[in-house]
Design a protein around this nucleic acid. Structure first.
Lengths: 351, 351
DNA sequence: TGTTAGCACTCGCCTATCGAGAGTGCTAAT
DNA sequence: ATTAGCACTCTCGATAGGCGAGTGCTAACA
């Protein structure tokens, strides 16, 4: 069942050609462009075999062949070689990324913008992996007699806050007390843990004013925790996909847009994924059957945390894009390392 | 130069028909559907006059007439009658909006979602008018020895925060000192004021540690203030426009998307606008020449603050949409009024 | 004088048709 | 096992004809 050397060569040629031109590729053009030393007829026979094995498809009788998800999978796993970044891409990453190294969220957003600019695909980026994050402290800050700010801070510096308006005024003391009270209760616990176990929590407290305030704050607290799992997902460059031939049909474009707008789906997708660069092709995604999702992780202080990714049609330059993402995330991780660990700020390890 | 009664009737009929069907409307169909007591030939003559005056255009010789921006403007100013909301829309607004009255940002986002659902257009909403907002206080909160959170709170409860990572550790005391120091300096000043006058501010301070910390924090402070002018703009339902006949062309759709993604443009647009429901038609918008923007203001505690709006092709149901927006913003303002002012939470004034 | 009926004319759009081009799959020769 | 040759298929673009909707003009009419 293994493929012969020649079959691999042909398959590789077809993928390269199709990725480049977005058009079904025929035996003749393969024979011409890539000299494999065989005639079109031979290639046709091999192609026929490859199709039978599920690596190629015919869009219609008598159009060329198109690689299947299976073919891309084989390519990504076995055939693909790492690509050196172009000098331009490297320069862009080095220059644009360092500029705002001191601010976390901004840096991540910039990284996503950068990625979509370089790859000409839609990109997204997630700040520190929130499902593993633990609560560091909770603050309640006064605005006016009925308005207050609820602020939840995670151990990696992740923050979410909501402004709350109560029906009755609160007192300064009860506010401070509740802040401390909640911090003690939740400090060190993960968001997931709190969300699963706290929903129907007792609001019990000896002091009445405090109990009342807590009763008012808790529903928002829960909702804000839920937000914390979603809110730090940046999505950029979605209009890039309009330039791709697979999305010239308005229906395709609409479908893509609608899915891309579903932040929760991406968050879900990201949480389940392992370290490093991960490629999910076509059918391997439950929805988005004709899209490929490539994600990569970056680290903060060496700890595994955030993800960044691109999404586009299965027809994409896997070699280039994975290389770019590796370089970019290395660079990011380097930027987020404690200063002093390494002398220079330009991470690029695969130089 | 004034239009005759009959011309107004005909113009109104053309607008109604075109808004409904999105197709150039001919004299015959007007005569048939709206009985004005005149023949198609008469209508043709009037149409010809209306075209000469700039209220109608021909897409091509021998297709029906299409209303111009000028016609819509006339319609909105003089012809249009308030529409009663459908029971369904009213119910939706009442039910969905009350649900989360206690949380500001969430409510506004929901309002935008709701608006786009009801109108089938793209919508956006802005939390309290940030250019008038003054700084209430500034907090610096510790995360770990090198990481801290910078938090800016406005007088209407608007909050922005950034996580900062410094190159050198800071001390607890200097952090608290700087918090107070900055709060004293900026409390009560508007964002604009600070941004314009503070850029090259001295970092002077007698205590060295404080001066150093301040030097590290100030650049982020400025950037975060800038963020505060943009960040609270929610945009929803952009995929709705794919269902409109004016956006079946991929190029049109792309143009729309690209503009819709430009948050700063919307923010700009919103800041300049007056109270109440405002309609800006076609050419009246510098960009988006074939779009209409409708915005409305809502109030918090009776003070003028936030805006909410829809955007779509100039062909839209002005009467319905303005009525919906009036109802919705009244409802919002009512929800954000101090409790006790009025007994019931359902605002709807134009019942 | 304003209104209307009639009619020729103009376009845009849909459909059918045709030919070119690209590619396959099979067969027979090497 | 490989290749050349050939018939066949299918898509795509261009072209032409016909239909329908609508205008603009003229002449008749109240």
């Amino acid at each position: 069942m293994d493929l012969s050397e020649r079959q691999l060569q042909i398959l590789q040629a077809i993928i390269t050609d199709y990725v480049e031109n977005a058009e079904p590729v025929g035996s003749r053009s393969i024979a011409k462009k890539y000299d494999l030393g065989v005639s079109p007829a031979t290639i046709r026979n091999e192609m026929s075999d490859l199709e039978e094995m599920g690596y190629l498809t015919h869009p219609h009788t008598s159009a060329g062949r198109v690689p299947s998800d299976k073919a891309y999978r084989l390519y990504v796993n076995d055939l693909m070689k790492k690509k050196n970044l172009s000098a331009k891409d490297k320069r862009m990453i080095n220059e644009r990324l360092v500029a705002s190294r001191d601010e976390f969220d901004r840096t991540i957003r910039h990284a996503a913008e950068l990625l979509s600019e370089i790859t000409h695909l839609a990109s997204f980026a997630m700040t520190p992996a929130t499902n593993e994050e633990t609560i560091s402290f909770i603050r309640l800050l006064p605005v006016d007699e009925r308005t207050l700010i609820l602020m939840i801070v995670g151990d990696s510096g992740n923050v979410t806050n909501t402004t709350l308006r109560l029906n009755v005024p609160y007192t300064q003391e009860s506010l401070e007390l509740l802040s401390k009270n909640m911090t003690v209760s939740y400090k060190g616990r993960t968001l997931d843990d709190v969300l699963k176990n706290e929903i129907a929590e007792d609001v019990g407290s000896d002091i009445e004013a405090l109990a009342q305030l807590k009763g008012n704050v808790m529903p928002s607290f829960i909702r804000t925790l839920e937000d914390m799992l979603n809110v730090n997902l940046y999505m950029e460059g979605m209009t890039n996909i309009f330039n791709l031939p697979e999305y010239t049909s308005i229906d395709r474009a609409r479908d893509f847009m609608e899915l891309f707008a579903r932040k929760d789906w991406f968050t879900q997708k990201m949480l389940a994924r392992e370290d490093g660069v991960v490629v999910t092709i076509g059918e391997e995604n439950d929805k988005m059957k004709d899209c490929t999702l490539i994600t990569a992780t970056y680290h903060v202080d060496g700890k595994l945390v955030g993800k960044i990714g691109v999404i586009g049609p299965t027809r994409m330059k896997y070699d280039e894009i994975t290389s770019i993402m590796e370089y970019l995330t290395n660079n990011l991780s380097e930027s987020f390392r404690l200063p002093g660990d390494t002398g220079d700020g330009n991470a690029g390890k695969d130089e």
